[in-house]
Nucleic acid binder design. Structure first.
Length: 471
RNA sequence: GGUCCCUUCGUCUAGCGGUCUAGGACGUCGGCCUCUCACGCCGUUAACAUGGGUUCGAGUCCCAUAGGGAUCACCA
């Protein structure tokens, strides 16, 4: 194992977001490619919004995608705990250290005062920066619990040598003294993320580029504490079709929603990896190919728009790649949900359904919804009945019924022979015979190949439907 | 508004100074195949944001402008 250590650190305030999955994926791939360690850490210092259900959603999503972590919830590790609410002592220790060294100080300004000064500054067009009035303050106001601020560098520049964006320079004068511990005793994000990454010995921080602006202040904290500064790599965001940050109004954003919509994890991961990463002209990647070829230098710097059509295409590809039996297993719950089956179906039989329908399906849900007539009485489409189940064709169908009744091996070969016999006798072309049969069996004009439909339905059911159609 | 990031077909992207009259993929459109619908196959469509430099030569380097995004909380 190399000494590369990366992490994915979501906050459990909702479901696992598509953007988060992509960030996790890049970290995971980086770790797996170089034989490093992948850490899952739960950032739950926001007590108000964090929930256990969300933690479960994150874990479920990660597992569904096949991203396993080496350290973190359920796995343990030498640098835990891996939930921030269980690390409060560690943060306190570091705050004290900063306080002692003079790199942090107590601030008694109330939120109201701060807000007042903030808006005043904004109104005058000045940057809203904390004026340090509590730095070195000796009078302690009664009845106020202070926050603790980090004393930022006043002069010079802080340089981020970003693995993806390149060298980014920030002027220290734009950074103010950020609050590292709130009055309720809970530390804040920009502080804990540093402590966690430092104490967990994270070597590479790969995260969304919405954090790029936070990086210089974090670097200052690393330095103030004497910790080595990790490498940073800031991934650009995933956008919706209107170039705005991906959100609910662009459709599904939760990874598990995609599972429910009938997407395969290998398809999601394949699609997501190509959003911002490329390997020549290759579009289709197995997990192994991704791991083998993943490097940071082929990550693009610009934001990418999430494109459902391409996802569909990739999902279609992977649906057709999986063993049919596995797809059959995956659609069982969907069939149950719809009440189309009441007991566990025969997987060998269900696999035939999958085989017949998967080519035209972008998702598992589509595959299922293409097939109601294979599970229950078909709904007869009036126009199709009128057009194809004519009086002229009925004698032909009766002949076919007669022939079919004599078939014991109800499979493609014998069925085809029966059709050809009927075609010869009637002088009709395949299309003229197949369409009426299709309508009789499925209620409509769209279905898999007619022999497949017959075979899936089976002899008894096929004959029943055909007889019903000829009256 | 300040700061930071980004800018090749509608979309994802290849391109790392000459091989680019810019390649692939999704999508679109057309065709072939065909028992329907699809799949598949073949073809089509369409882009270097703009303006200056640097260079013998720029999609590729630099600078402006424009546009987009992010961020400026006792959220993460």
């Amino acid at each position: 194992m190399s000494d590369i250590r990366v992490r994915f650190a979501p906050s459990p305030t909702g479901f696992l977001h598509i953007g988060g999955v992509r960030t996790a994926l890049f970290n995971w791939l980086y770790a797996r490619h170089y034989g490093g360690t992948f850490i899952l850490r739960i950032e739950d210092t926001d007590q108000e919004r964090s929930t256990d259900e969300s933690i479960k959603a994150i874990i479920d999503g990660m597992e569904w995608c096949g991203m396993d972590w080496d350290e973190g919830p359920g796995r343990g590790g030498d640098f835990g705990p891996y939930r921030q609410t269980e690390r409060l002592d560690i943060y306190r220790e570091h705050v004290d250290k900063l306080l002692a060294s003079g790199r942090a100080y107590k601030c008694y300004c109330s939120p109201e005062e701060l807000e007042e000064r903030r808006s005043a500054a904004l109104a005058e067009g000045r940057p809203p920066k904390y004026d340090r009035r509590c730095l070195g303050r000796t009078d302690i106001p009664e009845g106020r619990t202070p926050v603790i601020r980090f004393k930022a560098e006043e002069e010079g520049k802080t340089v981020v040598n970003d693995l993806i964006k390149g060298t980014v320079t920030f002027d220290n004068s734009v950074m103010d003294d950020l609050i590292i511990m709130r009055s309720d005793g809970f530390p804040t994000y920009n502080f804990v993320v540093v402590i966690d990454d430092a104490t967990m010995k994270v070597t590479h921080v790969l995260r969304g580029d919405d954090h790029l602006n936070n990086t210089p202040r974090q670097i200052q904290i690393y330095k103030a504490l004497g910790y080595p500064v990790p490498e940073f790599g800031h991934l650009s965001m995933i956008l919706g079709s209107d170039k705005a940050r991906l959100s609910k109004r662009h459709g599904a954003t939760s990874i598990m929603q995609y599972k429910e919509m009938g997407y395969l994890p290998e398809a999601m991961v394949n699609y997501l990896v190509r959003l911002g990463w490329s390997f020549g002209d290759q579009e289709i990647f197995s997990v192994k190919e991704m791991v083998d070829n993943f490097t940071l230098d082929s990550i693009s710097t610009s934001a990418a728009i999430f494109n459902p059509e391409k996802l569909n295409w990739i999902n279609h590809h992977w649906i057709n790649q999986r063993p049919v039996e596995e797809i059959a297993e995956l659609i069982v719950p969907m069939l149950e949900e719809r009440g189309w089956i009441t007991q566990r179906p025969d997987i060998a039989w269900l696999s035939k359904v999958v085989l017949a329908q998967r080519e035209k399906s972008h998702t598992l849900v589509e595959l299922v919804e293409l097939s109601p007539y294979l599970f229950k009485e078909p709904v007869m489409d009036e126009k199709s009945v009128e057009k194809f189940l004519t009086d002229e064709i009925k004698p032909v169908l009766r002949q076919l019924i007669g022939l079919i009744e004599g078939i014991d091996d109800f499979t493609h070969g014998p069925l085809e022979a029966a059709f050809h016999q009927v075609m010869e006798a009637s002088g009709l072309k395949m299309g003229k015979v197949a369409q009426p049969v299709r309508v009789a069996l499925t209620g409509g004009t769209v279905s898999p190949g007619i022999y497949d439909v017959l075979e899936i339905l089976g002899k008894d059911e096929s004959l029943r439907r055909l007889k019903k159609a000829v009256g």
